[in-house]
């Protein structure tokens, strides 16, 4: 008969189970997949994220002067699947824990993130390139004694030429020995 007292005591001790959200900030898990964030420093413009995006939320286009490219993520068609993050070779794309997404219809097409990412000129031929991020280069040249700081500023064909020259010099020294 007095079982309700036990329940009452338990409920008093536990407190309400309702999340006081609009009054207080809600708890967000650490690994929550929220809005997509791009680190323009690390992006190399390989477009694998654009290729993988199921919702077609990512657009990568050269700017008018061809001095860089514009990276746009439209959050209103992003399914938050995280495939862009999974396939990004330089880990430039991350998913933040920000889920405050409700907005009025006027903001519908502005609910996007725009990044303007500049190209660099190749130190050899002057072609427009994105520099290899040092983290990725460190993985590429992990087992090579070559100093990579100058190689990073070269386009792929100039890097090939530089590798051929290195090869030539080392062959010459071997012959002299």
């Amino acid at each position: 008969m007095f079982r309700f007292l036990k329940l009452l005591g338990k409920n008093l001790a536990q407190g309400p189970s309702t999340d006081p959200f609009p009054a207080k900030e809600a708890h967000t898990p650490e690994r929550f997949r929220g809005r997509v964030v791009v680190n323009p420093e690390q992006c190399v413009g390989c477009r694998i994220c654009h290729h993988m995006c199921a919702g077609g939320a990512i657009r990568i286009e050269d700017n008018e002067e061809k001095t860089g490219y514009n990276f746009t993520v439209w959050h209103n068609t992003c399914a938050l699947c995280g495939m862009c993050r999974h396939y990004c070779p330089t880990k430039a794309i991350t998913l933040s824990t920000d889920w405050h997404n409700a907005h009025t219809q006027e903001d519908k097409y502005d609910w996007a993130a725009h990044y303007s990412i500049p190209y660099l000129a190749c130190a050899g031929c002057g072609a427009h390139i994105r520099m290899l991020p040092p983290q990725l280069a460190a993985r590429l040249y992990a087992h090579s004694p070559v100093d990579m700081t100058d190689l990073l500023k070269l386009c792929p064909s100039c890097r090939q030429l530089a590798a051929a020259r290195r090869e030539e010099i080392s062959n010459d020294t071997h012959e002299q020995e």
Binding site: F21, T77, T104, Q105
Partner: peptide, 21 residues
Amino acid sequence: VDVNVPGCPPRPQSIMEGVLL
């Protein structure tokens, strides 16, 4: 439409924000 709540699906708190708006 007056209010948009994007997400796939949006979390309940996000829907509540949309309802409040």
